[in-house]
Design a protein around this nucleic acid. Structure first.
Length: 493
RNA sequence: GGCCCGUUGGUCAAGCGGUUAAGACAUCGCCCUUUCACGGCGGAGACAUGGGUUCGAUUCCCGUACGGGUCACCA
């Protein structure tokens, strides 16, 4: 999505690492982020390219390395009387809050409750010299009884009371809070559009105020509703900590192609995508023009069934070669048995090619994890290793079955074209007393012990051990008469 | 609790004052000269609720209910 949006709007995509919360730092997080993006073909023009390297002219791109910059701007605000040091300990702030709650008044550090708001500067200097711990707060000019209007690119017109909280901009550890870093960095990095989760929507009054007081031009905002999950009847935001499906690695592990995940996400993002896709079956998704104003205002429930359906369609459009490459790549990492099975590339390509490339390609594989089940019976090492207990259907008399198999071996000819092959089975069915046509059978079910379909089923089961398989003609062609006979003999002898 | 945002079939969703209220997934039935899948046809299934405004409200306004978000020296 990024790349197409970027292409259409001529913007620059940069990766900035927001690591101002040292407590939450995660080992090798940058590498993880870059790799995840790369897995989905999302490349950025500027920003961190590894744990400690970067490209671009607006760096550093890691906030922990921009400390001096934030300090300079904080100082600038203090000079103008728009920010001030606050010596309240976290406990003290908590006490104020408790008091407010007890009195049922709006909690927070604002107005008369902002203890250090008008503290004499000399005394502050003295306290700092004494080594007292402090933070820097923004001196909000806002008034709660006034309204502010904001036009969000996704949510539309929203009205809020002005912000009047003296929020902290520099923490005790000297690093900025998100609010402050956002304003400073996005100004310096020339950001003109901020797309972020809608948990930030209520911070808009604050951010706008901050931009205003700093003398910066505020960017446009687009607040996206998060993808939700049904949790015991409750709708809640997909959580990175609780829900595996919130991480892209989850889909990689299941073997859902990135094309499918993107396609599904686009379905959720813009409902117009569905129609676009129908009209442009061959086009790459980067040609789809994502529209912010078509984004859903409320969060959609994540739907795995739909994702898998999208994935089936996507995979059904892949060539056998692509299916081979992708699934063996997946198998190398997650399924050694499958990898081994696929060793003979030429043969596997044939197997994967069954009914592929047709006007109506099969939609049997939803994820690479499914490949093994879909193809394993085509390999002797698997077929003969399974216990041979067949679930015969209509025709289940041992002698009748043997009769069909034996007779079929006599008439089967590898050189037959499909129609001829088809007719051969019909003839055989007729010869053995079964109805040659299903319709015929349905008209007089008592005249026959079964019909051509039942005969085919016997062949299919003996051949594959399954009642459901793709086109049997192709299966026989790939297996060849010799292997076919070997499988039939398992029952005949 | 305050402040925001939202509520169309099971799910994702069109719709912008007058529609038989699209479509997709899921589901059910039938057909597709032999399974399954694909495909085709059809069925069932929705405007949270109460008031307004209007000749007429799913569409506009207010209330209620429900859901979500936010109220940190986290982002």
């Amino acid at each position: 999505m990024q790349e197409s949006f970027q292409a259409k709007h001529g913007g620059v995509f940069f990766l900035r690492i927001e690591d101002t919360d040292q407590k939450r730092e995660v080992e090798n997080a940058v590498t993880g982020i870059i790799e995840s993006l790369k897995d989905y073909d999302i490349e950025f023009d500027e920003g961190m390219v590894s744990e400690d390297e970067e490209k671009g002219n607006y760096g550093p791109y890691k906030q922990s390395q921009r400390k001096e910059i934030y300090e300079a701007y904080a100082k600038y605000l203090i000079e103008q009387g728009k920010a001030y040091p606050c010596f309240c300990s976290p406990e003290e702030v908590e006490e104020i809050r408790a008091k407010q709650e007890a009195a049922k008044i709006r909690p927070g550090y604002y107005g008369v409750w902002a203890k250090y708001r008008n503290f004499p500067i000399e005394e502050s200097i003295q306290k700092i010299k004494n080594g007292e711990s402090y933070i820097i707060r923004f001196k909000s000019p806002g008034r709660e009884d006034r309204k502010i209007k904001h036009k969000d690119k996704i949510k539309g017109n929203v009205e809020f009371p002005e912000n009047d909280q003296d929020i902290v901009i520099i923490k005790a550890d000297g690093l900025p809070t998100y609010h402050f870093a956002h304003v400073v960095d996005d100004h310096l990095m020339r950001t003109n559009l901020v797309i972020r989760g809608d948990e930030w929507l209520s911070s808009v009054p604050l951010h706008l105020q901050l931009f205003q007081e700093m003398g910066f031009k505020a960017p446009k905002y687009a607040h996206i509703a998060p993808v939700m999950k049904n949790d015991n009847g409750n709708k809640r935001k997909l959580s990175k900590r609780k829900d595996a499906e919130a991480a892209v690695s989850y889909y990689t592990k299941l073997g859902i192609p990135k094309e499918a995940v993107k396609e599904y996400l686009l379905n959720i993002a813009n409902s117009s995508f569905e129609n676009w896709r129908r009209a442009n079956k061959e086009k790459d998704i980067s040609e789809f023009e994502l529209q912010l104003n078509k984004m859903s205002v409320s969060g959609a429930l994540f739907d795995m069934v739909k994702l898998l359906d999208v994935s089936k369609i996507v995979i059904s459009g892949f060539t056998a070669e692509k299916v081979y490459e992708e699934s063996i790549k997946w198998a190398k990492k997650y399924d050694k048995e499958l990898e081994k099975l696929m060793q003979d590339k030429e043969y596997t390509l044939k197997v994967l090619g069954i009914e592929r490339g047709n006007k109506k390609p099969r939609k049997d594989i939803a994820k690479w994890e499914d490949v093994k089940y879909e193809i394993e019976y085509m390999y002797d090492e698997v077929f003969f290793s399974k216990k041979q207990e067949y679930d015969w259907q209509v025709i289940n008399d041992k002698e009748k079955i043997k009769e069909i198999l034996q007779e079929y071996l006599n008439v089967y000819n590898e050189k037959h074209e499909k129609q001829e092959w088809f007719d051969t089975i019909k003839e055989l069915a007729g010869k053995l007393g079964y109805a040659k046509e299903v319709k015929e059978y349905k008209e007089n079910p008592n005249n026959y012990p079964g019909h051509v379909g039942d005969v085919s089923t016997v062949l299919r089961i003996a051949l594959t051990g399954r009642t459901n398989t793709p086109d049997m003609y192709e299966i026989m062609q790939i297996l060849g008469k010799e292997k076919m006979a070997k499988r039939f003999n398992l029952i005949l002898n």
